[in-house]
Write a protein that binds this DNA or RNA. Structure first.
Ligand SMILES: [Mn+2]
Ligand SMILES: [Mn+2]
Ligand SMILES: [Mn+2]
Ligand SMILES: [Mn+2]
Lengths: 221, 221
DNA sequence: AATTTATTTTAGGCAAATCTAAAAAAAATC
DNA sequence: GATTTTTTTTAGATTTGCCTAAAATAAATT
């Protein structure tokens, strides 16, 4: 069950996955632009990935990942986003300086390492950029569900989940009259402390701290 | 000042360093055995490392790392041992299952990553196997200085350092009459809790917990 | 000192990943 | 529908790291 792919193959698979998300299928030219390489190099790799059963590809046609390929892509993305979360939350990196390093760390494939890292980080659901982190089975929150911290001003949303079940968190949510299903609107965001002012119907506007916003997940309305 | 070496080149440099430690200089045959490769492949790489100024090498002679090569070796070893420490102390790996993973993580070269990891781990001086971790300048405790946790029964030693300056630690050391310079002998080791019984002259035998032994560094006598 | 043995290097080749230039196919335009 | 343009693939090289087999050198034996 271990796939044993080269760093290059993994980077190709991840790139195909991300381009698919945007447009359903991918072309040689688009992929070569994304990877900053030549179309000829891409064609070489496409044949290789097809031979390994990871890509559905016929010459001159658009292509997409096979089910196996998609599963591997999600493993790589899981590693990438977990490491990003680690770098920001534990090593005090800025969210804008983690990508390059995660681009390397994502290729350390030990399943045990990744699952233990996930546990150490308390199973985060979103990376520092607000992108969902696949769990150990490749499942992740739908992209509609995002951390409250990433909503723009004026956005209306409904609380769908909290990433933490501690009594401290539940106490705070009770005090602010916030529950799963609560509808709210972002009134303002303050860069000084990254706090957010939100409006809940029939209540006074209230302030959400950076810490709280980070663990509150909502779907936009 | 960034060296930008391949994983293979880094593994060669590290192997040369370790073999040098044992015997002062290295031969093609010995290195090929260590890296499980052929002497011909080693010769190829030796020429490449010489061309890069990392190795002092003349055909048919023994060779050793240049000052630059040594510095790079210490950076790789620093990364390897810091990751091993991280895996054991933060991710709850067993000390016997970290080497393979660290063998991969050591090649992620970001200086910022490594120094922040070091800080996050509180600047550990020894890895889980008792080997010293070079600091950000490549300096490390002499191999004579080891954690008390790694001394065999019957060994006499003298306390040389503690890896932590907390008041809690100093309080405990005061209570046990242990100072820098204190001479002791290991009487027994208990695998149940990894505690150690030591004898200090003119005092009753006393028990050192696993936690305390881990931060007490000694030189053997 | 001559011969045997061990070590090391060279020569030539292979696989992976890349490139440039040319050919083939598909898409867009007239 | 024919022609131009774009996209994609193929052909042939290059670089890195590795191999085997043969040649060169050094070390050990007699
Ligand atoms: Mn990558
Ligand atoms: Mn991200
Ligand atoms: Mn390694
Ligand atoms: Mn170690």
């Amino acid at each position: 069950m271990q796939s044993n792919l080269s760093v290059t193959e993994e980077n190709y698979i991840k790139a195909v996955y991300h381009l698919q998300q945007a447009s359903g299928s991918v072309t040689t030219n688009v992929l070569s632009a994304k990877l900053v390489t030549t179309p000829a190099s891409v064609t070489d790799m496409l044949k290789k990935l097809k031979a390994k059963g990871l890509l559905l590809y016929e010459p001159y046609k658009v292509f997409c990942l096979s089910p196996t390929g998609s599963k591997i892509a999600l493993e790589i993305i899981r590693r990438h986003r977990l490491w990003e979360y680690f770098l920001v939350e534990k090593l005090a990196f800025g969210w804008d300086e983690v990508h390059e390093v995660a681009e390397e760390l994502e290729h350390v494939g030990s399943k045990k390492l990744v699952d233990k890292l996930d546990q150490f980080l308390d199973f985060p659901k979103f990376d520092p950029h607000g992108d969902p982190i696949p769990d150990c089975n490749g499942l992740m929150s739908s992209v509609e569900q995002v951390s409250l911290a990433y909503l723009p001003i004026g956005q209306q949303a409904q609380v769908t989940a909290v990433s933490n079940q501690s009594t401290e968190l539940l106490e705070l949510l009770g005090h602010k009259h916030i529950n799963i299903g609560t509808r709210l609107e972002v009134l303002a965001k303050f860069s000084f402390d990254n706090s957010i002012e939100v409006k809940i119907k029939d209540l006074q506007p209230l302030n959400i701290s950076e810490q709280l916003a980070g663990v509150l997940f909502v779907k936009t309305l």
